[in-house]
Write a protein that binds this DNA or RNA. Structure first.
Lengths: 342, 342
DNA sequence: TAGAATTTCCGAAGCGGTTTGGATATCACC
DNA sequence: GGTGATATCCAAACCGCTTCGGAAATTCTA
């Protein structure tokens, strides 16, 4: 059932039917009603390709997920973020197009997306401290919102981010207050802004408390369970092992927990652990007493807000770039306690 | 840069330029070359909306991810499956459209997708034992491939699945061979086919070995960490606690491991655990000696194969429905050992 | 070398919507 | 009853591409 058939059935012109369905005023209310009924009856939906060709808007948003190489780790927070964004899109009649790309293809994929008019805007994931995509997207004039931030730029752009720096500073301060001095930071890859800012927050707290920064207690890698396991296992074998771990994600912390258990130590008593919790739905750290003390921030909500921001920008291209900085909450769980060495 | 401009620049008709770029034979090789050069220079990409309007094919595949309700658990295997499928799509010039939907909306979302010509086909996720979507999709004539299977039907349809039944039978048999008799099954929701088949396999092995089926040792729920924790904690408090756990996913097993640790028991010695491992990239159970003994099957690869199957079906609608049954491999890790009670 | 066959290109008609610029009918008002 | 305003509808152009049905130019055949 297309517009032509529908209008012929009704004995009306395509113009009138289109206008009736799209809520234009220049159509009699009774005919509008008649049209709506017929459309519902015939299960008529405008062909979205034809519609977007005519209007020039594709009504879809692109999410480009970077992977180091094909077959590489897919960051679990993407799914959650995308689920949040999708909620907003459906609410406003937008579709979500997903593509995975290796970092070397990224230059072309955005150009292609723009040139073939596939999307009205994109969400930028996993920004680097000095991310070339920023300039690229500005150049090709495709609206975008960054999930996270880029450090080395003075230009204005849309972003939404969690306050990684203050979150990790706060978490570190808690550990220091508990008497810990030998604190390990199990971080993500520090060319990624979020990991870099977390490290800054970590060092901020150490400095303010006059504690020397020990690079040997700071590690960076992709956020996997085995990474957490191996790295904390190695750290616990040191002659002066850390008494506390600050861990960048729940998944990594699972590895840390495994290593601590295997070393015959108890979390929250012998060793303290604080994690950052993105509130992934299948992990739920939020029992009455959470297993992990954590800085928490819902990545799903970030997805919703990022999507809203992008749709606003698309509706009003003259809008000055917007920023949102989400504060995390520090919730005390059973994985932290006073330092035993004190 | 659109086709009209490009053809005017070249002094050729739109027809010829289009044909040159799309590899049609009725164009001189030298002009084809000239056209290709100009297209590359001007970064010309055909407007995908116009193209699909003209050809009638949208060149995009829909993935509809069911969630119990908005804000509910997003199954982590979706991301991995979709990453695999995406690889195939990009290879063949297709795009991937993602939508999340609550189960009550599903009837309408597929109809809408078909009516508005948004996608050329869909992948069906998380099939139920008696899934109404099967009939619906056949009725509206949208090509589809099921990731998993539907039980209660005699109709032919495209599916790709892991052999859940034999995997869990094999795993159970291993536990029985190790002397275990009190085996718990920590399963997914059994209206989902995969969970149902796993239970069947579990019971198959018990029956063949003359072991009574004890419903109190079988649990079903959404596959989250807290579920694994709470349910295994409760089971371990029984007067005759299970000596082995068969667990439906890595994430759930993490909860089981936590409960076992808290009970002062050691995995692989006091209690055995076998999991099903979907080979999610960020969990990597595949060290020299894996932490968990596991039935393994790459869900990413399943995604790639499902996508191929669907594209074949779209290219040749007369094709008889195809099926692929992937066998899992049982790899021994350090989480299993002989039953202590023997 | 005429006529047929083959190359190589083009004009124009879709694809299914939206939207511009009227046309007609209805109504109010003097 | 004539005039202007308003309500309601329509024909046709357009979005950017593909593709059908020739037409012109070239090469091949007898």
């Amino acid at each position: 059932m297309n517009l032509k058939e529908l209008s012929e059935n009704l004995g009306l012109s395509q113009t009138t039917v289109s206008r009736a369905l799209n809520g234009y005023p220049e159509v009699n209310e009774s005919t509008r009603h008649r049209v709506q009924q017929a459309a519902a009856l015939g299960n008529y939906r405008p062909n979205i390709r034809a519609m977007s060709l005519a209007t020039g808007r594709s009504m879809t948003i692109g999410h480009v997920i970077p992977v180091a190489s094909q077959g590489e780790v897919v960051n679990p927070i993407f799914a959650e973020f995308v689920a949040g964004a999708s909620q907003t899109y459906t609410q406003f009649g937008y579709e979500l197009q997903l593509s995975f790309t290796t970092t070397q293809d990224e230059q072309t994929i955005y150009r292609t997306l723009a040139a073939k008019r596939a999307v009205d805007g994109v969400i930028l994931h996993s920004p680097l401290r000095d991310d070339p995509r920023l300039k690229l997207l500005k150049e090709i004039g495709l609206p975008f919102v960054v999930h996270g931030r880029v450090c080395d730029t003075s230009e204005a752009y849309n972003w939404i981010d969690m306050n990684n720096r203050s979150a990790f500073k706060q978490a570190t301060q808690l550990l220091i207050d508990l008497g810990h001095r030998n604190i390990a930071l199990i971080n993500g890859q520090e060319q990624l802004t979020f990991a870099w800012l977390r490290r800054c927050g970590f060092e901020d707290a150490l400095c303010e408390n006059g504690i020397a920064i020990n690079p040997e207690l700071m590690t960076t890698a992709e956020l996997t369970e085995p990474y957490g396991y191996q790295t904390s296992k190695a750290l616990l074998r040191r002659e002066d092992p850390p008494t506390a771990f600050l861990v960048s994600s729940y998944v990594v912390a699972l590895g840390v927990r495994r290593a601590i258990g295997q070393a015959g130590l108890t979390i929250g008593k012998d060793v303290s652990v604080i994690i950052h919790d993105d509130e992934l739905s299948y992990f739920d750290n939020g029992a009455a007493v959470p297993q992990f003390t954590a800085t928490r921030s819902s990545v799903r909500q970030a997805g919703m807000l990022a999507a809203e921001m992008l749709l606003n920008q698309i509706d009003d291209p003259g809008l000055f770039p917007q920023n949102t900085l989400l504060e995390s909450t520090l919730t005390i769980g059973s994985s932290t306690g006073p330092c035993k060495l004190m």
